[in-house]
């Protein structure tokens, strides 16, 4: 039920981000969503892409340190408090959220990508709350 996120190490230097995007473009890999935090010397660019394996391969060929990480992409509705309620369930179980960012699916919903300390357990809990997740196939279909 997890999807593969592409994580790339990049130096905080002009042109580096653009080079990552170029490598993906060259390989026909579409970016669905991304997250990049600001640090002084380097950053981890996290991407949800149409074809993670191909993206990783292309980046490695261009000399980047890239890897795939399993994350959970879940569907939410536009309702006040829904994310808070779900996190409450996860936190009560002693699971830590490592990072989270929005996933744009092109539809009128509010989806997120989430990485937690214990991913299988987090998914069990969310599923019992009636939450739906995106599969790799769903992601590949997003235009």
């Amino acid at each position: 039920m997890f999807i593969k996120q592409l994580s790339v190490f990049i130096e905080n230097r002009e042109g580096r981000l653009e080079q990552v995007l170029e490598a993906l473009k060259k390989n026909g890999v579409n970016i669905i969503s991304l997250s990049l935090a600001d640090t002084s010397d380097y950053g981890l660019l996290r991407l949800i892409v149409s074809d993670p394996e191909k993206g990783k391969q292309g980046l490695k060929e261009d000399g980047f340190s890239a890897m795939l990480t399993e994350v959970l992409a879940i569907k939410l509705s536009h309702r006040v408090g829904q994310l808070q309620e779900l996190l409450n369930v996860i936190c009560k179980a002693g699971i830590n959220v490592e990072y989270m960012y929005a996933l744009s699916t092109g539809k009128d919903d509010a989806s997120i990508v989430i990485k937690t300390s214990d991913l299988p357990k987090a998914w069990e809990l969310l599923k019992s709350e009636g939450v739906e997740a995106f599969t790799a196939r769903d992601i590949a279909k997003i235009q």
Binding site: Q5, S7, F9, A37, T39, Y42, L44, R46, S65, A66, M67, T69, E98, K115
Partner: peptide
């Protein structure tokens, strides 16, 4: 040069 592949700022 970083050889270790990672998705974690803490590890870096």
């Amino acid at each position: 040069e970083l050889l270790k592949e990672t998705d974690s700022y803490r590890e870096l």
